[in-house]
Computed example of a mutant assay.
Amino acid sequence: MLKEKNLKLMKLAALTLLFTMVQGCGENGDKSEKKEDPIAALSPDEKEESHSHDNITHSNPSKRIVKPEEARQLWIFPESADKLGSGGLLQIYMDPESHPDASSGFSKYELGVGGALPEHKHNKTEEIAYFLSGTGIVISYENDERKETVVKEGYVWYTAPGEWHSFQNTGNEPLKLVFATVPNAKHGLLDFFKKVGVAPGKEPSNAMSAEEFAKLASDNDLILKPAEID
C-alpha cells in the first residue's frame, strides 16, 4: 500500500515538473515573439528619418575612392597644344558632376614655371589649399593693402569668400598643390576651369574677348579684380 502511494506521488511530481517546463517554454516563445523591433517601435516620422539615413550610404552613387587615372585632366591656359609652358595642369577628383552629394570639390593643380593666376575673388566659394612642392608667392589683401607671402611644401592657404587673391610660381619647377572648394556647387570655380581648359594635346582656344572672358568667370563665381589705372 505504501509503495503504491509513493508511486502515485512520484507520477504527480513528474507531471507537475513537465507542466512547469512546457509553460516556461511557452512564455519564452511569447517573449521572443514580442521582442520589439527597434524600427517598428519608432513613430512614423522617426521611421522615415531612419530609412532616409540608411539610404544616404547605400544609394549615393559617388565614388569613395578615386584613382589618379580617373581624375579629369585639363590644361589651363597652355602655351600650345603640345606644350603647357607657364599654364596649369588641373586634375579634378571631386566636383558637382562626379560627387553631387559631397560638401566640397577636390582637385590638384600644377602651375608651370613663371605662371600666375590673375587676381580675383569668389563671392560664395571658400578655398583651402595645401602646397605639395615648388616655391611661389600668395597674393592677398589686409585692410586693402596688397600683401605677398612666400609659400612652399607643407604650407596651407585658406581664402574666405569675398577676399581678393592670387598666386605665382617663382621657382624653377612646377608649383604643385591640392585644394578643396566649398561648397561643391554648380557654376563654381571648377566649372569655370572646365569651360576655359582643354584636354592635354588639344589646341587652346583664344576666341573669347576680354569682356566675354570676364563674364564667363563672373557667371562661375570668379570675379576678376579690375586693373588699376595710374
Rank of each mutant, 00 (worst) to 15 (best):
E4G: 11
E4V: 10
L7T: 09
K8E: 14
K8P: 00
L12C: 10
L15N: 08
T16G: 09
V22N: 08
Q23R: 09
E27H: 09
N28A: 14
D30I: 04
K31W: 02
K31Q: 03
E33A: 13
K35M: 14
E36K: 15
D37I: 12
D37L: 12
I39N: 01
L42T: 03
S43I: 02
P44E: 01
P44Y: 03
E46C: 07
E46D: 13
E48T: 12
E49P: 04
E49Q: 14
S50R: 15
H51E: 14
H51C: 10
S52F: 13
H53K: 10
H53M: 12
D54A: 14
S59Y: 15
N60H: 08
S62I: 13
K63E: 10
R64W: 09
R64A: 13
K67F: 13
K67D: 11
E69T: 15
E69H: 14
A71V: 07
W75N: 05
W75I: 06
I76V: 15
F77N: 14
L84I: 12
G88E: 15
L90C: 05
L90E: 05
I92W: 00
Y93Q: 08
M94W: 11
M94R: 13
P96K: 04
E97C: 05
S98H: 05
S98Y: 03
A102I: 14
F106L: 09
S107R: 04
S107A: 15
K108P: 01
K108H: 11
Y109R: 06
Y109K: 04
L111F: 13
G112E: 05
G112V: 06
V113A: 07
V113C: 06
G115C: 01
L117P: 03
E119F: 00
H120M: 09
H120E: 01
K121S: 05
H122F: 03
N123P: 02
N123Q: 13
K124V: 03
E127D: 11
I128E: 10
I128R: 01
I128L: 15
I128Y: 10
A129G: 11
A129E: 11
Y130E: 12
F131G: 07
F131H: 10
F131V: 12
L132R: 12
L132H: 12
G134A: 06
G136N: 05
G136R: 06
I139T: 08
Y141E: 14
D144S: 06
E145V: 15
R146K: 06
E148N: 14
V150G: 02
G154Y: 03
V156S: 10
W157L: 10
E163D: 13
E163R: 10
W164D: 04
W164E: 05
Q168S: 09
N169W: 11
N172P: 07
N172F: 11
N172L: 12
K176V: 15
K176P: 04
L177G: 00
V178G: 10
A180H: 01
A180D: 06
T181N: 02
V182Y: 10
P183S: 02
P183Y: 05
K186E: 08
D191P: 00
D191C: 02
F192W: 03
K194S: 11
K195H: 10
K195L: 14
V198R: 00
A199W: 02
E203G: 01
S205V: 07
A207G: 08
A210V: 10
E212K: 05
E212L: 02
L216A: 05
L216G: 00
L216R: 04
A217W: 02
S218K: 00
D219G: 04
N220I: 03
K225H: 05
P226S: 00
P226W: 01
P226F: 04
D230P: 13
